[in-house]
Every structure is written in structure tokens, then in C-alpha cells.
Design a binder for these strands. Structure first.
Length: 672
DNA sequence: ACGGATTATACC
DNA sequence: TGGTATAAT
């Protein structure tokens, strides 16, 4: 799984910044009276007091652990404060933590290349900033050194304990005979201390950090002294550090691969890996993983910090464990509607805040079958082009689910006699949006277009009339066909149309019978958590509609792409990516840390831009005319205006292969 | 089939 | 490509 990356010749300074029990801190900022108290954040769950997803350090002292239940936590630490994760649409809502994470990123991103590694972690490439500091104001030239810097831990440094450790830190950092790597590292340590102070000041969050020469070591170090501390890793300390490090502690080795190393090769520490030749490791784990292992044993990892501040996908999911497993199509639909709504909302935010659009919708589910023999078959994932608008996402998600369900159940359908109960149970559902690309910021009409697609649900709920749009001809047909039945069922709220349409992706409508009538129309009463989504009258109508041949969703989903597809063909990168790096999610109100950091800001960003240009490789001239014709005229003109000159773009003197090189140029204002 | 919701990435 | 598997938090 891991892939080998040769270490770059140049010495880098990489930091990994990790927020301390992040969700707890977010809640404590909201309720300051919780500060200093043993606190944990629990996920909404009646069962056993909920599951802990974050635990404060005070609570950890009492022996409270993540992956305890709320009840256990109270037992271990009676005075613990349990805060519930917000709930929206019947599921955990993490938006509060997402935006808190963005606050942090926007501060950390100022110092150099920054990668959002998770909601509460970032990697920074501080090489340039450190290099600049070393040239302009090296540590030994500083008259005073910040307290936060002096509190740093530096691996391999004599005995850090007692009070003179601050002195030794200063000495180490200012020592004249240090090699270039150590000097750069010292600068990194100073920069990170400053950044962490700034994060604390502007967000009230503490974090821990590791500073090293690559991501792997930085990550390792950030976890070594928590909370609210930082750790530096000089080259000279690497061997000793790794020699005794349990193999499973290493990133990527916490799972099966690590287990295999232990069991099959008798490797217990990273140091143990050194005994094996590169070819030996390759024999066992393949060329890529083999070399990767050989490298990490030596502290070598050339993995670059991706200049990415925003997530590459959005997902919304929920599990339905044990007895809560969903057994009817209508409850599945209910939950898919909830999940789709949340996803749609987040896509809208992403569009307006970041000017990005997603182009693929994917449905994942997990299931089991009790009655049948092979009760453990994987429920397949399905995806289709993503159409903006909550209703559309709901429809598409449900259709994807049904397609997957048929596959899951098997080509033999189930119960030809219709006597057996359905055997499937859904234990998890999730919808996600991926292939997210930037749209040019100058084209406001496009933004407006998508916003109109995603808002005003009641307005667009009356199905077919929905705007001019990216609807394919075949889809429109299907729509009008539905229309007659649809209007009579029209319910005020959600779930009007899609409920019982069983689009047949395979064009064989025998498949429709796969699901018994009972399952479609009713919510069994023994399913406590099942929420009735339809009225009685609705159910009757549904039943009648079962077996009807309805629209052909296969065409709808697979046929001519929606407007989003236009953008998958354009190089996402260049100009708009640059923006992402700079103003991304949050207002960049924060000031720069110091001159040496900010002075290199633009250069760093430029690097990012150049590198990213090759990330995506879409070709603009592959857009089908028929796709354009589907669009509102306003948009057609706009899109064509920046397509036309592009027919011959591959002649510039830009570097690289130039295939997608300066497409950005064509996305400039171009007013007419 | 209880650690849940999310994200990323490599592989085929 | 889409779908699967693995891993991390």
C-alpha cells in the first residue's frame, strides 16, 4: 500500500502539527466553564452512554480512553463532563469541528506549503522559511529566545529534565558548529513555536508539533510530547529513535501490514527491519511496499507536503449497528435522504466559499444477510455523475443504492415465490462527493447557476420543471413520464417522488420484483428506529406503482453528462488553485508570524502552483457540443468564450509537457 | 454485528 | 475508470 518515494537531495524542514484532543477543545471554547475539567466528547448514542471520540488530558489521567463508552468513562472518572456531538438530521454533525479545523489551517498556511492531513492535523514544509531565517537572522544572532522555543524537546539531547534543559535547548540551537541540517531544524523549531503561539492566540486552541526532515519523522515526533509541546528530530537522533520503535507505531504499519511484518518476518521494531535486504522485502511485499519499508527503516521518506488546504471529497454517512440495521427500502431511502441533504449542504458551502464543484457521487453501504448462507458478501459501491441540488442527490443516491442492492442480492433475485422475507440488512450508509475541481473565480454566472441548483428545495421539488438545465434528453423523458403519477402523490415535504420508483439500471424490469411489496410500502413496527416517511395514502399509491416500468435512470446517470462534467475537463489547477492556497476557506485576517516567514510566502505559493499544474490532466477540447447545448444560453456563451481560444493552446513556452499548461490564461476575466 | 464518521491512497 | 482494500484519526 505505501509507496516508496526517494528522499530529495535537499534537506527539508517539515512540521506536523496536531491539535490536542481537538473536539474537546472546540467544546471547551464554546463552554469555557469546562476548561480544566476532565471532559470527553461523546457521539450521540443512547447505547451505553455513547461512544467517546475525544478525551481531555485531565480525563486521560483518570484512565479514560478513547473507544470507551460514556458509561465506562463515568465509571472510571465520575466527575467527567460528557459533551454530546451536535446532531442534525438524525446523525452526528461535525461541521462545528470542520470549521474550527479550517481556522487553524488558515493560520498555519501562512508559513509555507501546507497540507491539511485531517480535520485536526497539518503538515508544513518550512524549508524556505527556515532557510531564509538562517540567512537573515540565525538563532545564535537572537538576543532573546522565546519561552515556547526553549520548552521544545529535542531528541537525542542529553537529559532533558530539571531546569537547565532550557539552557541546553538554547545551547543546542545556537551552537556554531552545527551542521546545516541542524541549523535549519533549529529555525524550524523557532518558526513552529511562533506558529503555535499564534494559533493559541487566535483560536484558543493548543496543539503539539513535531519538526523533522521529513513527514514521517515529523509525525512521529508530534505525538511524543503532548499536549501543547513540540519535539524536534535531528538527523543524529533518527537511528536510535527508530531502533526501538515498535513497528506498529509507524504510520501505515498499524494494520495488517505491520502484523504481517511481526508474524511473517519477526520484525518487532523498525530497527529490526534493517536486517532485511531491499530485495528480500520486495519479495515479500512487492516492489513498491518493499522499497518503502527498506527506506523507512532508515528514516528515509521523500513524501512531499501537498499544498492542499481543502479536502478532496465530502462524505456523509451513518451506521446502523446490530438491531438497528435497516430492513426496508423506505427506511433506507429515508436515511439516504438525510445523508444526501447534508452532503448537498456541504457542497453548496464548498461552492460558495471555495468555488469548487464536485463531479462524482458515490454510494457506499454495508450489509449482511441473516437467513442466507453467504451472509457475508460485500455490498458494492456505486457512483454516477453528480448533479447539484439536494433532491437530485437524493434521487441519484437512492437509485445507486437500488442498483447496488440488485447486484448484492444476486442475479437470481430472491424468493421467486415471494414468500420469503428479504434477507438483507443494511448496517451502514454513506454518500460522498468526489472529483472536486476549482471553477474560475471570474465566472460568476456559473457560480450562480449552481447555487440555484442547490437551493430552494420546494421550488425544485416539483421535479421536471426544474430549470433549463443539465438534464439529458432521456432523463427528461423519464421525468415527464413520471409526472402524471407524481403530481397526485405530491407531498408537502420530502420523499414525494422518488419513493417507489424502481428505475431499472439493467433495463430488465423483472428486477423490480426483487424487493417484495411489503418492504417497499411499509415500515415494520418492530423496527424501532425506522422513521415513517410516507403517509398511508402514499403507500397505496406506491404499491400500485410497483412493477410499473418507469424512467430509465441508467440513461439519466450514465448518458450525457451534466454540467459538472464540463469542468472535469478543465485543468483544475493553475490560477484558482493558487487562490485556494491563499484565501481558501477562511478569512486571512491573521498577521504573519515574522518577516522571514512572510517574505517567502509568495515564492512558496508559486512553487505550489507550478507543481499542481500537472496534478490533474483534463483536456478542455474534449467537451461535446451536445453537452454545451444543454446549458442555459448564458452559460453556453460564457463557457464557449473560454473554450474557443483553447483549441490551440499547446504552443506556449511554458515548461513541462505543456499539455495543460497555461489554461489558466483562458480563464481570465474575458469580458465581452 | 458496536468505535463512528470521515478522509485518503494504492491497486487492479 | 470505477470499485475495492487498507489505514488513520
Amino acid at each position: 500500500m505505501p509507496v516508496a518515494r526517494p528522499e530529495t537531495s535537499e534537506t527539508r524542514v517539515i512540521a506536523h502539527v496536531d491539535m490536542d484532543c481537538f473536539y474537546v477543545q472546540v467544546e471547551q471554547r464554546k463552554q469555557p466553564e469546562l476548561r480544566g475539567l476532565p471532559t470527553a466528547v461523546v457521539q450521540y448514542n443512547e447505547w451505553q452512554g455513547g461512544g467517546l471520540i475525544a478525551v481531555s488530558y485531565e480525563a486521560r489521567k483518570c484512565g479514560v480512553k478513547r473507544s470507551m463508552r460514556g458509561d465506562e468513562a463515568k465509571f472510571a472518572c465520575p466527575e467527567i463532563q460528557l459533551v454530546q456531538v451536535p446532531v442534525a438530521r438524525g446523525k452526528a454533525d461535525l461541521n462545528l469541528y470542520r470549521s474550527a479545523g479550517s481556522e487553524v489551517v488558515s493560520i498555519l498556511a501562512q508559513s509555507g506549503k501546507c497540507e491539511r492531513a485531517s480535520i485536526d492535523e497539518v503538515y508544513l514544509d518550512l524549508t524556505d522559511a527556515a532557510e531564509r531565517m538562517l540567512a537573515d537572522a540565525p538563532p545564535e544572532s537572537l538576543e532573546s529566545m522565546d519561552e515556547e522555543v526553549l520548552k521544545s524537546h529535542i531528541l537525542g539531547m542529553s537529559r532533558e529534565d530539571g531546569d537547565d534543559c532550557k539552557e541546553s535547548v538554547r545551547d543546542w540551537m545556537c551552537r556554531r558548529d552545527a551542521d546545516h541540517g541542524d541549523k535549519l531544524l533549529s529555525c524550524g523549531i523557532i518558526i513552529v513555536a511562533e506558529l503555535r503561539k499564534q494559533v493559541l492566540k487566535e483560536t484558543e486552541f493548543t496543539c503539539s508539533a513535531g519538526i523533522a526532515h521529513n513527514k514521517m519523522l515529523a509525525k512521529l515526533a508530534s505525538g511524543m510530547n503532548k499536549p501543547a509541546q513540540q519535539t524536534g528530530v535531528p538527523y543524529s537522533a533518527v537511528q536510535e529513535l527508530l531502533s526501538s520503535l515498535p513497528i506498529k507505531k509507524m504510520k501505515q504499519l498499524g494494520g495488517k501490514l505491520g502484523t504481517s511484518l511481526q508474524n511473517d518476518l519477526g520484525v518487532d521494531t523498525v530497527g529490526d527491519l534493517l536486517q532485511f535486504s531491499e530485495t528480500k522485502l520486495q519479495e515479500h511485499y512487492g516492489i513498491n511496499t518493499g522499497t518503502w519499508l527498506w527506506n523507512i527503516a532508515r528514516g528515509i521518506s521523500g513524501e512531499e507536503v501537498q499544498g492542499r488546504l481543502l479536502p478532496k471529497s465530502h462524505g456523509s454517512g451513518k451506521t446502523f449497528p446490530g438491531p438497528r440495521a435497516l430492513k426496508s427500502l423506505s427506511t433506507v431511502q429515508h436515511w439516504l435522504n438525510q445523508l444526501s441533504e447534508e452532503l448537498s449542504e456541504r457542497l453548496s458551502s464548498d461552492l460558495e466559499q471555495n468555488k469548487r464543484i464536485a463531479s462524482t457521487l458515490t454510494l457506499h453501504a454495508s450489509a449482511f444477510r441473516s437467513r442466507d448462507s453467504d451472509s457475508h458478501k460485500k455490498f458494492p459501491s456505486k457512483s454516477c455523475p453528480l448533479r447539484y441540488g439536494a433532491i437530485k442527490i437524493q434521487e441519484d443516491a437512492f437509485n445507486l443504492f437500488q442498483a447496488a442492492l440488485r447486484e448484492y442480492i444476486g442475479p437470481f433475485g430472491i424468493n421467486p415465490q415471494g414468500n420469503k422475507k428479504e434477507t438483507w440488512r443494511i448496517t451502514g450508509l454513506s454518500v460522498s462527493a468526489s472529483k472536486i475541481v476549482d471553477i474560475p473565480s471570474g465566472t460568476s454566472s456559473i457560480t450562480r447557476y449552481f447555487q440555484s441548483q442547490s437551493t430552494a428545495p420546494s421550488h425544485s421539488a416539483d421535479g421536471c420543471v426544474q430549470e433549463h438545465v443539465a438534464m439529458t434528453p432521456s432523463a427528461s423523458e423519464g421525468c415527464s413520464e413520471q409526472r402524471s403519477t407524481e403530481t397526485e402523490v405530491a407531498m408537502p415535504e420530502e420523499d414525494t417522488s422518488v419513493t417507489c420508483t424502481l428505475p431499472n439500471f439493467e433495463n430488465s424490469y423483472k428486477d423490480i420484483d426483487l424487493v417484495s411489496e411489503k418492504d417497499v410500502v411499509s415500515c415494520p413496527s418492530n423496527e424501532a428506529t425506522d422513521i415513517p416517511t410516507q403517509s398511508e395514502s402514499n403507500k397505496g399509491t406506491q404499491a400500485k406503482r410497483i412493477g410499473q416500468k418507469i424512467n430509465n435512470l441508467k440513461e439519466k446517470n450514465r448518458g450525457i453528462p451534466s454540467i459538472v462534467d464540463i469542468f472535469k475537463n478543465y485543468s483544475a489547477t493553475a490560477s484558482s488553485k493558487q487562490e485556494t492556497q491563499e484565501d481558501s476557506t477562511v478569512s486571512s485576517t491573521s498577521k504573519r508570524v515574522n518577516f522571514s516567514i512572510s517574505s517567502h510566502n509568495s515564492e512558496v505559493n508559486q512553487e505550489v502552483e507550478e507543481r499542481r499544474e500537472t496534478d490533474w490532466g483534463y483536456k478542455l477540447d474534449e467537451i461535446d457540443q451536445s453537452v454545451l447545448d444543454e446549458l442555459p444560453v448564458e452559460i453556453q456563451r460564457e463557457v464557449r468564450s473560454f473554450m474557443r481560444p483553447n483549441k490551440r493552446f499547446n504552443v506556449g513556452k511554458s515548461k513541462g509537457d505543456g499539455s495543460a499548461s497555461s489554461i489558466a490564461h483562458y480563464f481570465q476575466p474575458l469580458k465581452r
